[in-house]
């Protein structure tokens, strides 16, 4: 008996310890310098957003007309002031809160609805799939910003409505992704086995199909936050997003664009912030794709 036990133990000892998918992915991600740079940029803006009240003594909506258009690094204003004498750095860090929150929530909303629809369409097939897929086709037949404009026109101008619009327009992206993943998973043996032992449909969907579809969703979601942030800013820029004095970056650009010659910094910094955050999420998303699923790499 003890001989057998010893044999089993030595056999198992020679098998290399298997690392979890996430640990393995993290190790691969860490090796990618650009992805880490992207992660660093995102982390930097998260810290700015969280520490906003500590980082600046000024209120983001406190107009002070005597302080209009102060140049960057003058009179205690790191990034200068805008046309109403508001501290630009303050507005940008509070703007980071808005952009990150809206980007994240919009993507989470799209993922929840899109994943659900994708799972149902892919698993049940037939007419349910046909209806859901056609709705996706119709939504994708519009350039996304245009559909967002249409939705905000219906709902009315506000940051919340912009968030809802952005969440809605991105639903088909996740829906299609999950649907195609489910279609391929459905043919796998473990799903057939689950069906054969009489497992209920909802259990197969939530315990087997959903966890196995998560990788592409996470990758697409990270890249999706970048898109959502740009879309929020675009709606704000068109006057369909946040209402002033909310320091949303796109709205700030729209408010400052007439003063570009007089005070270029009021346009440069909000735009630069959008670009950097978006770049951060894009780099991180690209890195995650390579780390989590090397096969997905083009």
């Amino acid at each position: 008996m003890s001989q057998l036990q010893h044999k089993v133990e030595t056999t198992f000892a020679t098998i290399p310890k298997k690392e979890s998918l996430w640990l393995d992915a993290w190790k691969r991600l860490r090796r990618r310098k650009l992805a880490m740079l992207g992660g660093g940029i995102v982390l930097f803006f998260i810290i700015l957003a969280v520490l906003a009240p500590v980082l600046t003594p000024y209120p983001y909506d406190g107009a002070e007309l005597s302080q209009r258009f102060i140049k960057p690094m003058e009179e205690g204003h790191w990034l200068g002031t805008d046309d109403l004498g508001r501290d630009l750095f303050t507005r940008i860090v509070y703007g980071a809160q808005i952009s990150l929150r809206v980007g994240f929530l919009a993507v989470v909303g799209s993922i929840i609805v899109g994943t659900y629809l994708g799972l149902v369409a892919g698993y049940y097939g037939k007419w349910i799939d046909m209806i859901i897929s056609r709705v996706f086709d119709i939504m994708l037949a519009f350039p996304s910003i245009l559909l967002a404009i249409a939705i905000v026109t219906i709902l009315g101008r506000s940051l919340t409505n912009a968030l809802i619009a952005i969440a809605i327009i991105n639903v088909p992206t996740y829906g299609r992704l999950v649907r195609s993943k489910v279609l391929s998973l459905k043919e796998e043996e473990f799903i057939m086995a689950a069906k054969a032992i009489g497992m209920k449909n909802w259990r197969i969907i939530y315990h087997h199909l959903l966890p196995n579809s998560m990788t592409p969703i996470i990758v697409q979601g990270t890249l999706g936050i970048a898109t959502a942030i740009i879309e929020t800013a675009a709606l704000g820029f068109l006057g369909l997003g946040a209402v002033p004095p909310t320091p949303e970056w796109g709205t700030m650009l729209a408010d400052s664009k007439d003063y570009i010659q007089l005070a270029p910094w009021t346009v440069i910094f909000p735009g630069l912030s959008i670009m950097l955050v978006v770049l951060g999420f894009n780099l991180l998303g690209d890195g995650l794709r390579d780390a989590l699923d090397p096969k997905m790499k083009q």
């Binding site: 740009i230 820029f237 650009l253 664009k257 570009i260 735009g271 950097l276 770049l279 894009n282």
Partner: peptide, 18 residues
């Protein structure tokens, strides 16, 4: 190319004008 993909078109336009 990486920066270009992340560029908000409305900001790029404003900067070009400037």
């Amino acid at each position: 190319a990486l920066i270009g993909v992340s560029m908000p078109v409305f900001w790029l336009g404003l900067m070009e004008q400037y």
